[in-house]
C-alpha cells in the first residue's frame, strides 16, 4: 500500500517524473490536489458534488493519460487546473447546467475569500460575507467570474492564470481589470459601497 510519507518532500514536477516510472506515485499528485480541484470545479460550474467528483475523476485520468505531454516548465497545478477547467466546460456543454444556482450553505463555504494584498480583496474581506460574494459572482459573465475566482479565491498569479486559461498575460490583466470593475458595479447594485471606485 502506498503511503503519504512516500510523497513527502517531493515537488509536483518530481512526482510527475516518478509517476511515469511507477504508477503509485500518481497517488501523491491526486491526493495533493483533489480537494482544491474539486472546490474549483464546484466554484466555476455550480455542478452537484457528485457531478463535480465525476469531472474531477475524469480530469485526473485524462492528466494521467497525457502525463508524457506535461511541460516541465509549467506548474503541475496550472496544468491540472487547466484540464479540470476543460473537463468542466465539456460537462457544461453536455448537461447544459452552467447557469444552475447554488443554494446550500455548504456550497457557500466555497466562496470564502482568500486574503490578499489587492485593495479589492481587502475591502471585500471587510464588507462582504460568503453569501454576498456568491450573489455578486452569480450575476457576472462567466469570463469575469472565472478570472475573479482564480485570482481571489484560488490565489493564482497572473502567470498561472495565463497558463490555466491559455491566454496571454496582457489579456489576463485586461480581463481582470474589467472583471474587478464589473464586480464593483454589481456590488454597488446590491448595496455594497466601495471607496476606490
Amino acid at each position: 500500500m502506498f503511503k503519504n510519507k512516500d510523497c513527502e518532500g517531493k515537488s509536483d514536477e518530481e512526482l510527475v517524473r516518478l509517476a511515469l516510472e511507477n504508477q503509485d506515485y500518481y497517488y501523491c499528485l491526486v491526493s495533493r490536489w483533489e480537494n482544491k480541484i474539486l472546490r474549483y470545479i464546484l466554484k466555476i460550474s455550480s455542478a452537484t458534488k457528485e457531478d463535480a467528483e465525476d469531472i474531477l475523476q475524469d480530469a485526473f485520468i485524462s492528466a494521467y493519460k497525457s502525463l508524457n505531454d506535461f511541460d516541465r516548465n509549467l506548474k503541475f497545478s496550472s496544468w491540472i487546473y487547466r484540464i479540470a477547467r476543460n473537463k468542466t466546460i465539456s460537462f457544461w456543454r453536455k448537461s447544459k447546467i452552467r447557469s444552475k444556482t447554488v443554494s446550500s450553505d455548504d456550497d457557500l463555504e466555497l466562496f470564502k475569500l482568500v486574503p490578499g494584498d489587492d485593495d479589492l480583496a481587502k475591502e471585500l474581506e471587510k464588507k462582504c460575507d460568503s453569501r454576498q460574494i456568491k450573489n455578486i459572482l452569480k450575476n457576472l459573465e462567466e469570463k469575469y467570474k472565472e478570472i475573479l475566482i482564480l485570482k481571489f479565491l484560488e490565489e493564482k498569479s497572473y502567470r498561472e492564470i495565463s497558463d490555466i486559461l491559455k491566454k496571454p498575460m496582457g489579456t489576463v490583466a485586461t480581463l481582470l481589470s474589467r472583471a474587478k470593475k464589473k464586480f464593483k458595479e454589481e456590488a454597488m447594485k446590491q448595496g455594497i459601497e466601495f471607496k476606490n471606485l
Binding site: F2, Y27, K65, N68
Partner: peptide
Amino acid sequence: MDKLTDSIINKIKKEKISPAPKWIFL
C-alpha cells in the same frame, strides 16, 4: 487512503490505463 483518490487510482489500475507514449505528443 482518501476515498476519492482511492477511486481514481483504482480506476486507473482496474482499467489498466497508462500514459500515452511520448512520441505521440512529440
